[in-house]
Amino acid sequence: MTKKSVWLSGPYLAWIVGFIVLPLLTILYYGLTDTEGGLTLGNVIGAVADPLNIKALGLTLLLATLATVICLGLAYPLALCLTKLKMKKKSFFIFLFILPMWMNFMLQMVAINTILEDNGVINAVLTFIGLPKLHIANTFGAVLIGMVYDYFPFMLLPVYNAVSRIDGDLINASKDLGANSFKTFLYVSFPLSLPGVISGITMVFIPAVSDFAIAQMLGGGKIQLIGNIVEMNFTKGQYHTGSGLALILMAFVMLSSLLTKDGAENEGGGMIVS
């Protein structure tokens, strides 16, 4: 508790340097050298210049944006509804919404695949009520559904935390001053909930941008995201090319988290019902 206790963080600092800084330097080294060890920008430039990568990047950004928007669109009204809800043990009720997340992520994907298949649950229901079958399995839509499902709790929790903390007096004051519900929402509630929204966006967008497993599990090998290309480079042992692409991906991620820095502060802490 005195100045001397600074050294208590020694092991932690060593860990950070050893297993965060050094690995990042390693990937930087790989990204900036060729197989002979010569310095080059070829990997990074090649990563951006390859039309296939650009296409994959476009698809990734589209998918990640859609997933984020849908998550927000579903979570924000839900957060509002939940705040209005009056009940005992509410925190436990909120917890019900993140509980499915704790079933292993891969098992979730397996379940979703079972539901979406041509002969799966959805189509069984559709056939039963006399509607034509939907072909969702192994398409862009399937990957999108998988992402929304997997990342939804990461959006809901920060948004709910922000919305539920809004001081009711402020809302009442706004109404007393003559604003209608819509105006109150637009000028009072929504701006106050913005940090939570931004935090949620970061927590959905970043994993979505770097995903490869969901696309692999639900895309039938037909959806190639940036993550899939990095993974392909990895499985094929093309470490230098892969690192170049990974650096680009990292730049994207770091940029988006810098842009949303304020909101991201309460990340992690907001993930468990407190």
Binding site: S9, Y12, L13, I16, F19, I20, V21, L22, P23, L24, T26, I27, Y30, T202, I206, P207, V209, S210, F212, G227, V230, E231, F234, Y239, G242, S243, A246, L249, M250, V253, M254, S257, A264, E267, G268
Partner: peptide, 23 residues
């Protein structure tokens, strides 16, 4: 220190994993 320590939290998992593997 916090900024560096939080990198794995913010960074794409695939980059973290790949960098650790290379290291």
């Amino acid at each position: 220190v916090n900024a560096v320590a939080n990198i794995p939290l913010l960074n794409a998992d695939i980059v973290t994993g790949f960098s650790l593997m290379l290291f």
